[in-house]
């Protein structure tokens, strides 16, 4: 790939250039936003890496101008600023991915290989793997259903009949084909020997139906504190059960973060939120699940983002 590296620090550019050229890429450099825009207008690049903190034109402005001029060009922010809000803003401004300068910069290579059409391996389940994984997850969903039944004091059934694995770059397209919007997304980060994100997604309208069933009340517009807390607790139970089972399968101990609830979102900002965090999480496992609470039947999506290496470990363990 031909990659434009934009950073005001010559040392930072050298560091990125070394990494990329050793991986077989061709690199051009720009030390400021104006130079980057000019080079991008005169050349055809496959991707751009850009710093955020730069004099004159900062990275956010460059991102906006570059995105306007080159809508399809993958742009990867490589910044020392590791704040989650900064990452969110960069992704919202059109960045394809965010790689922190602190930590392992090889994450940049994973991002480049996960770009659409860049030859990322699409994992194909064997029938044996798919059966084993579905059985494993349904065991976890059964445990989660029992916990939810006790929590909600209602009959609860939860099954995950269909599972898919895909490069994270394809997640947006996958969800957009299936969802007109998202009524609620409960996210948790997990870390330990492996790191990833997990989320439970309710399609438009489904979270409200669930809340009406379990709380016998609806508040329109927006969610009350108790409704938000209920969704967080339901998500927490399901996600913990799924990730704990995953940890058992891989023989690793994982720690879950606190649940974050987002409501009423379009698919694009949602997929950006799911991808926030280490960019090594370049693959997604999507479980299309059915949730029944009392007489109410819903569809939910359970999504787990993992690095490619851990997906490979998981697939290997399923055949053992």
């Amino acid at each position: 790939m031909h990659i434009l590296v934009v950073d005001d620090s010559a040392f930072a550019r050298l560091r990125i250039r070394r990494l990329l050229t050793m991986a077989g890429h061709t690199v051009s450099e720009a030390s400021n936003g104006h130079q980057a825009l000019q080079l991008a207008a005169e050349n055809r690049f496959d991707a751009v890496t850009l710093d955020l903190l730069m004099p004159e034109m900062d990275g956010m402005e460059l991102l906006g101008r570059m995105r306007a001029a080159h809508p399809q060009l993958p742009m990867i922010v490589v910044s020392a600023d590791i704040q989650e809000e900064t990452q969110r803003q960069a992704l919202a401004a059109g960045a394809t991915a965010f790689v922190p300068k602190s930590g392992q910069m090889t994450a940049l290579l994973n991002v480049l290989t996960s770009l659409p059409g860049r030859g990322v391996e699409e994992f194909v389940w064997t029938l044996l793997q798919q059966d084993a994984f579905t059985e494993m997850m349904n065991e976890a969903m059964g445990q989660a259903a029992n916990a939810l039944a006790s929590l909600l004091e209602r009959r609860v059934l939860l099954t995950a009949p269909k599972t898919e694995i895909m490069p994270v770059a394809m997640l947006h397209e996958f969800l957009e084909r299936r969802l007109s919007g998202v009524s609620a997304c409960i996210r948790e980060h997990f870390l330990g020997e492996i790191t990833g994100n997990a989320a439970l997604i309710f399609p438009a309208g489904h979270a409200e139906i669930l809340l009406h069933a379990v709380l016998d009340q609806t508040e329109v517009p927006g969610l009350s504190e108790i409704e938000r807390a209920t969704l967080a607790e339901i998500g927490n139970v399901v996600l913990n059960a799924a990730i704990a089972r995953l940890g058992d399968q891989l023989h690793v101990r994982l720690t879950m973060g606190l649940p974050t609830v987002n409501t009423n979102q379009a698919v694009m900002p949602l997929t950006n939120l799911l991808r926030a965090g280490p960019t090594t999480m370049n693959h997604a496992i999507v479980l299309l699940s059915r949730l029944a609470v009392g007489e109410v039947h819903l569809i939910v999506y359970l999504i787990i983002l993992l690095p490619e290496t851990d997906i490979r470990r998981l697939l290997a363990s399923l055949e053992a």
Binding site: S9, A10, F11, A12, R15, L53, S79, A80, D81, I82, Q83, E84, E85, T86, K101, S102
Partner: peptide
């Protein structure tokens, strides 16, 4: 150049960690 970039990474890592955990930007 080297020192500026190392300082940038270290200072941002520390303050970014504060920001993330304390929920400020």
């Amino acid at each position: 150049e080297v020192l500026t970039e190392v300082g940038n990474i270290l200072l941002n890592a520390c303050l970014g960690m504060f920001g993330n955990l304390l929920k400020v930007h």
